[in-house]
Structure formats: structure tokens, C-alpha cells
Computed example of a mutant assay.
Amino acid sequence: MTEPYWLSHVREYLHGANVESYLKDHDIGHYELTVNGADRHGGVEWTYQSESEHPRRYVRLSIIPDPSGARGTLELIAGASDGHRYATRRIALMQVETTALDKELPQQWLYGAFHEAERISLTERDAQFPDLVTQQHK
């Protein structure tokens, strides 16, 4: 099965963001890319997960492409789970050009998702968190 052409652009974006160096330079916990462009119910997902387990923290980037693959719905989420409770924060939900993520999703938003994941407290009774960024491109 041939990979959709736009997936390589997303991988280049994530590689260019150099997440590992950013996390180290800003003294944020160690995260590992555990899901690398996996098919999830018609979308494609990348998940960075922390090594710590109590709570386990994660950042997930998902894209559901339109039929052409040229555009898609992007969702960026930060979350934490201790195995019993979890909380998530949506960082971004927007329409993007899948081959131009470097222009449409600023790396600071991606980096900010890791900061949000580190701040999530599971003692907040799984509170609903407001969207930090919601943007619609036309």
C-alpha cells in the first residue's frame, strides 16, 4: 500500500520541529514518539508520550484529510492519565493545507502542547478545559 503523498510533508514538519532538542533545552520531561503516522479511524495520528507513568503525559497531533489529501482537519491535544483518570486540553483545531504545516501550525503551538501536558493536574476532577486555540482557515 502506497503512503499518501502529504504524509511525508507532515513527517518533515515534525522532524524540522526537532521536538527532542526543544524539550531538553527547556527542561521538559522526556517524551518519545510512540505513534508515528498511524491510521486511526480514517485519520492519521502522531503521539509523543512521556516516560513517566504517574501520570503519563502525552501530546497527540491528528489529521483527518479531505478526499484529495491537500487539506485536512488538524487537532493538537495535550493530555495526562494515571490509569484511572485522565484530562485533556485541546491546543488547536483547524483546517490546514497538509503540505504546508510549517506555515499553518506554528512550531510554538506544538511546543506549547508539551508545556500544557506538563501542567495538567489530575486532581482537577477531570475538569473540562476550554480550547486554547480554535482557528478556521478558509
Results as ranks from 00 to 15, higher is better:
Ser21Asp: 08
Asp131Tyr: 14
Ile63Gln: 02
Pro130Ile: 06
Arg71Pro: 04
Leu105Tyr: 13
Glu75Tyr: 11
Trp109Tyr: 02
Gln95Ile: 07
Ser62Phe: 05
Thr98Lys: 05
Tyr22Leu: 03
Thr98Asp: 01
Arg57Met: 05
Gln135Ile: 11
Gln136Asp: 13
Tyr22Ile: 00
Arg119Ala: 11
Glu53Asn: 09
Gln49Asn: 09
Leu132Gly: 04
Tyr31Trp: 11
Glu124Trp: 12
Pro106Gln: 01
Pro4Asn: 06
Trp109Ile: 00
Ala17Leu: 09
Ile77Ala: 01
Ala127Gln: 12
Ser21Val: 13
Ile63Ala: 00
Pro67Thr: 06
Met94Val: 03
Gln135Glu: 09
Ile28Lys: 10
Ile91Phe: 05
Ile120Thr: 06
Asn36Pro: 07
Ser50His: 08
Arg71Ala: 09
Arg60Asn: 11
Gly112Leu: 07
Asp27Cys: 07
Gly43Val: 03
Gly43Glu: 03
Ala87Lys: 10
Leu110Gly: 04
Pro55Trp: 06
Tyr111Cys: 01
Arg11Ala: 05
Thr34Ser: 12
Leu132Ala: 07
Leu61Trp: 00
His137Tyr: 07
Gln95Leu: 12
Val133Arg: 12
Glu20Met: 05
Asp66Thr: 05
Ile77Asp: 00
Leu122Pro: 03
Gln49Cys: 10
Val133Phe: 13
Ser21Cys: 12
Met94Pro: 04
Phe129Gln: 14
Thr123Ala: 13
Arg90Asp: 10
Glu53Lys: 13
Val35Leu: 13
Leu93Glu: 09
Glu51Asp: 05
Trp46Arg: 01
Asp27Met: 07
Glu53Trp: 08
Ala78Asn: 02
Thr98Pro: 05
Glu53Thr: 14
Val44Ser: 10
Glu116Ala: 12
Gln107Pro: 00
Gly79Thr: 04
Lys24Met: 15
Val19Asp: 01
Glu32Arg: 13
Arg90His: 06
His30Ser: 10
Gln136Phe: 05
Phe129Leu: 14
Leu23Glu: 12
Pro106Trp: 07
Pro65His: 04
Pro65Thr: 06
Trp6Phe: 13
